[in-house]
Design a binder for these strands. Structure first.
Lengths: 216, 216
DNA sequence: GCCGAACCGTAACGTACGGTACGGCCAATC
DNA sequence: GATTGGCCGTACCGTACGTTACGGTTCGGC
């Protein structure tokens, strides 16, 4: 043991290692299928020996890659719970737009495909990691916003989890599954803005308190 | 090339061939990953030679399997467009429950995983077939219902496609992606009924005409 | 009863790929 | 300036799997 195994460690990869992981990501996006150790080594201009020394085995490399990309996405800012309806609307719309941007990005598509294929065999737990850093992470970040909205009398719901899942559905709709299955669905910046706004309006129509108590 | 190639033909597979395809499905569900030609032959009690004669190659076998399962699912009945709000509600709820049942079934999960993994490489078009017989097929079947609802003054929308996508999101929410990524999410009959009702109510809240002209 | 076709079971072949070993290069250390 | 350690490039090994080939068996038609 010992050595430089970054497999399951919480340690951050070195700059060189990050470059390798970026090579894995780019290869995943471009070639999709041909994610072989040899191809990674060639793309990253490193030897296979180094790959195995650093990441243990293929699974370790993939896990590290997923973690690395997750850390990059997670770098998003923390919204402060706000109180008036306009700020709530903006906050929700921001979440929606961010989420749509993420799930429609080539990197996310390739990564989710990989994790889903991995979930088919019961070897690794890439699926769990992706879920943890995607769907569940955004729920955790959105919950305080929703609950602050409820505190302020702007929203009405019993269970914040259920409310979140409705929002999730209104935002994502059929986008992710279509992209994963290879449908050529392009989301430009304009479409994302429009879809985010529509989803937010629909969510507020369902969960917003009618006639939000005029504070005057 | 004559012979019995059922690869891309529209012909229906023989009973024996159907048994083979069912073996593929069961193997896909149980073993997930180990979908090897040898395993299929063993499970179906047939020789590999026969597999190749009937389906051409591995890809042909997979394509035939997806088509076979699609034909089975497509056997659902055709709802007749109806006119009053109760019938519309029931129809929508029926669609929602059916869809939730399908996407949470082990067969659908395994099939979608396969098609998604296939979409990663650009060889075949299993993803297209699955989309065609899943997401797009249900849209085609639901559209007349939605438009009949609009004709009857029960629904209000500009674009039936947009309305459908909202309904799709309200029904599916995060269920499919979580299941595909290996999350242990079990949907019992009760949950499906409840979720279908909730999604339908929400959809009608968004797209239903307020105070649907009391006919008395 | 015989023939040929279809099919089963299994062995064999070629290739792709995960993992390992080794020789050479370069940079830091003494 | 020799030594040591980290790393690159590549050759190599074992295995898994798609695909093909072949001997044996069953069965319908003459």
């Amino acid at each position: 043991m010992s050595a430089t195994r970054n497999t399951a460690d919480t340690e951050e990869p070195t700059a060189r290692q990050q470059a390798v992981l970026d090579a894995v990501l780019s290869l995943m996006v471009e070639e999709g299928d041909q994610l072989t150790m040899t191809a990674v080594a060639r793309r990253a201009s490193c030897s296979k020996e180094t790959l195995y020394k650093w990441f243990g085995d293929r699974d370790g490399l993939l896990t590290a890659t997923v973690r690395w990309q997750a850390a990059r996405v997670r770098a998003g800012r923390y919204d402060r719970p706000t109180l008036d309806i306009a700020a709530l609307h903006d906050s929700l719309k921001g979440f929606a737009a961010t989420w749509l941007t993420v799930i429609s990005s080539p990197t996310s598509i390739a990564l989710n495909r990989l994790a889903i294929g991995d979930a088919a065999s019961r070897k690794s737990n890439l699926g769990r990691i992706v879920l943890e850093n995607g769907r569940f992470a955004i729920a955790e970040r959105l919950r305080p916003v929703l609950e602050a909205g409820r505190e302020a009398g702007l929203l009405a719901f019993d269970d914040s989890e259920t409310a979140f899942r409705t929002f999730f559905g209104l935002v994502g709709r059929d986008v992710q599954i279509r992209l994963l299955l290879g449908d050529s669905l392009t989301l430009g910046r304009g479409e994302i803005e429009r879809d985010a706004a529509r989803a937010t309006d629909q969510f507020l129509a369902l969960y917003g308190r009618k006639t939000a108590a005029p504070e005057a």
